[in-house]
């Protein structure tokens, strides 16, 4: 059976603004703590973790309409992996970002999932902080 982990966070900014960063496959390392490098070539992405381990991924979907990004890690330790980032417009100039991880072996869902929770916190910090700064300086 797969392990599944889901984390979500509400961000006090419009969905489109959040999607610009969260939906950009090549910018994951900017907001995912512990990922230090990210390169995209077609539907292939390679991330490098802070431990120096490169992790090849396949991009499965990048849907600007639904604001959904899906990928899978293709290293041999995973029999299955799927990561999904959804940015959901809440209709009040805020959005809910949901980061889901499913994996076999199931333990890897917890290992990756812990990172995704921290990533959502960082995404919120950057986007809300950045906008505040822009407002303050504008």
């Amino acid at each position: 059976m797969y392990g599944t982990i889901r984390h979500e966070i509400r961000i006090e900014r419009p969905a489109g603004q959040v999607w610009e960063l969260a939906g950009n496959a090549s910018r994951l390392h900017e907001w995912f703590p512990g990922i230090i490098e990210c390169t995209v070539d077609g539907n292939q992405r390679t991330i490098v973790t802070a431990t120096g381990i490169p992790m090849p991924e396949e991009i499965l979907a990048c849907d600007d309409t639904q604001r959904r990004f899906q990928y899978r890690i293709v290293t041999p330790i995973f029999k299955h992996h799927r990561g999904t980032i959804d940015v959901i417009d809440l209709g009040d100039e805020t959005c809910l970002v949901v980061y889901s991880t499913e994996a076999d072996p199931r333990t890897m869902a917890m290992v990756i999932g812990g990172g995704t929770a921290a990533a959502l916190q960082e995404l919120k910090r950057q986007i809300e902080g950045a906008t505040r700064q822009m407002k303050g300086t504008g």
């Binding site: 995912f32 703590p33 512990g34 990922i35 973790t49 802070a50 431990t51 381990i53 333990t107 917890m110 290992v111 990756i112 812990g114 990172g115 921290a118």
Partner: peptide
């Protein structure tokens, strides 16, 4: 802090590294 730390996020695991 957790031992299984794929993203090297925890200080406890970083000192030896």
């Amino acid at each position: 802090e957790p031992f299984l730390d794929a993203f090297a996020r925890f200080a406890e695991n970083g000192f030896a590294r």
